[in-house]
């Protein structure tokens, strides 16, 4: 990669100037988010089909979920989204220290979300409210309540994997920020991470009412 004279260090050789590189990255990120939405979309389809076939079973089964924990997790994730947005705002204003504090806060809220999720999961595993052949619970009326838990675990599990992936990426961004890689002139990776993290939040905004608040 031979950079031409006057090119900033972060500018790759095949771009003419930073604005083009930044816009390309953002464009690519949005296309990636589109693929994420359609990846989850498959599970939303499964949810819709089986709920339309078994409305009563879905209602009975959803009572096994803890609304309070679900609502708390929603608040936690929204807060983490706020801190992520503020981290980017801080770096736009070149307040590097603030930006790092907000990133750390985002990581903490993400961890809280996972801890709460862990307690919910272990409670269900303990009761045998599990997918498919592992379903041993007997307290729910209706046809095949294991399907509700199959879809519940698939969707929240995939979402949880995205939270973990997001934490890894945010940690990496935090390390780069601590090495002074970012400034108000160049913060593209942080902005892309923010977009990803907001999408994770956005998906949870739909998962919460669909699983915890059925009728």
């Amino acid at each position: 990669m031979n950079h031409k004279e006057g090119h900033p260090e972060f500018l790759a050789h095949h771009f003419a100037e930073p604005e083009q590189q930044h816009e390309s990255a953002k464009f690519g990120m949005w296309v990636f988010l589109l693929t994420e939405i359609l990846l989850f979309g498959g599970l939303f389809l499964a949810y819709t089909v089986f709920r339309s076939w078994n409305p009563d079973m879905f209602y009975n089964a959803h009572l096994a979920l803890d609304r309070t924990l679900g609502a708390v997790n929603t608040v936690v994730l929204i807060t983490s989204s706020l801190t992520m947005a503020l981290a980017i705002r801080s770096i736009q204003l070149n307040r590097k220290k603030h930006s790092m504090y907000f990133l750390i806060a985002t990581l903490v809220f993400a961890a809280v979300f996972l801890v709460i999720k862990y307690f919910e999961y272990s409670h269900k595993i303990h009761l045998g409210q599990l997918p498919g052949k592992y379903y041993t619970y007997t307290g729910i009326e209706g046809n095949n309540p294991h399907i509700f838990f199959g879809i519940y675990f698939a969707m929240t599990g995939l979402h949880g994997v995205h939270v973990i992936a997001g934490m890894i990426i945010i940690s990496w961004i935090l390390i780069r920020a601590s090495r002074n890689h970012f400034s108000h002139e160049y913060y593209t990776p942080m902005e892309m991470t923010g977009l990803y993290w907001h999408l994770v939040d956005l998906i949870w905004i739909f998962l919460f009412p669909l699983f915890y608040l059925i009728g």
């Binding site: 953002k26 464009f27 949005w30 296309v31 988010l33 589109l34 939405i37 359609l38 979309g41 498959g42 939303f44 389809l45 819709t48 089909v49 339309s52």
Partner: peptide, 21 residues
């Protein structure tokens, strides 16, 4: 354009669900 990308993701998700239904 990004708004368009986002909305088309939603639109194709709706196609997937509605046509299956």
């Amino acid at each position: 354009l990004y708004m368009f990308i986002f909305l088309s993701a939603v639109a194709f998700l709706v196609i997937l669900i509605v046509f299956t239904m």
